[in-house]
Simulated assay, not measured.
Amino acid sequence: MDLAGLEFAAFRFRLKADDRFNLPRFVGSTLRGALGISLKKTVCLARDRESCTGCLLQPSCVYTYLFETQKHESVPKFRTISDIPRPFVIRPIPSQNSSLLTFDLILIGRAIELIPYLIFSVKRLEKSGLGPKRDRFTLMSVTSLHPEGEKLIFHAEEESLSGGWFVCSEEQLERRAEEMPDERATIALRSPVRIKSNGRLVSDLQFHHLIRALLRRISLLALFHCGFEVKADFKRLIEAAEGIRRTGGELKWIDLERFSLRQKSRVKMGGLVGEVEFEGDMRPFKKLLAAGEWLHVGKGCVMGLGRIEVIDGRREESGRASGREVEGSGGSEIGGR
Results as ranks from 00 to 15, higher is better:
residue 157 E to V: 02
residue 185 A to L: 09
residue 166 F to C: 02
residue 161 L to I: 15
residue 156 A to P: 01
residue 181 P to R: 10
residue 163 G to C: 06
residue 164 G to A: 02
residue 165 W to P: 03
residue 157 E to G: 09
residue 158 E to A: 12
residue 179 E to L: 15
residue 164 G to H: 02
residue 160 S to E: 14
residue 176 R to I: 04
residue 161 L to C: 00
residue 166 F to L: 03
residue 174 E to G: 05
residue 162 S to T: 14
residue 171 E to W: 09
residue 157 E to Y: 05
residue 173 L to M: 02
residue 163 G to R: 02
residue 170 E to A: 06
residue 182 D to Q: 12
residue 179 E to G: 08
residue 171 E to S: 11
residue 187 I to S: 09
residue 159 E to R: 14
residue 163 G to F: 03
residue 187 I to W: 06
residue 171 E to I: 11
residue 170 E to V: 00
residue 187 I to T: 09
residue 163 G to L: 06
residue 160 S to W: 07
residue 160 S to K: 15
residue 177 A to T: 03
residue 184 R to L: 07
residue 178 E to Q: 12
residue 180 M to P: 01
residue 161 L to R: 07
residue 161 L to F: 04
residue 159 E to K: 13
residue 170 E to K: 04
residue 166 F to K: 03
residue 180 M to W: 00
residue 174 E to N: 09
residue 167 V to A: 01
residue 185 A to V: 15
residue 185 A to T: 06
residue 173 L to Y: 10
residue 157 E to R: 15
residue 157 E to M: 08
residue 176 R to P: 05
residue 173 L to D: 06
residue 154 F to M: 05
residue 164 G to Q: 02
residue 165 W to Y: 12
residue 165 W to L: 08
residue 178 E to H: 01
residue 170 E to T: 00
residue 160 S to Q: 11
residue 171 E to M: 10
residue 156 A to T: 08
residue 159 E to M: 11
residue 157 E to W: 13
residue 173 L to K: 05
residue 170 E to F: 01
residue 177 A to M: 01
residue 178 E to F: 07
residue 165 W to E: 00
residue 176 R to G: 08
residue 182 D to G: 12
residue 167 V to F: 13
residue 167 V to N: 08
residue 178 E to Y: 03
residue 156 A to D: 10
residue 156 A to K: 12
residue 173 L to N: 11
residue 184 R to G: 08
residue 157 E to P: 01
residue 155 H to V: 07
residue 172 Q to Y: 00
residue 156 A to N: 12
residue 171 E to Q: 13
residue 170 E to D: 05
residue 183 E to V: 08
residue 181 P to C: 09
residue 159 E to V: 06
residue 187 I to Y: 05
residue 154 F to G: 03
residue 187 I to F: 07
residue 183 E to D: 13
residue 185 A to F: 02
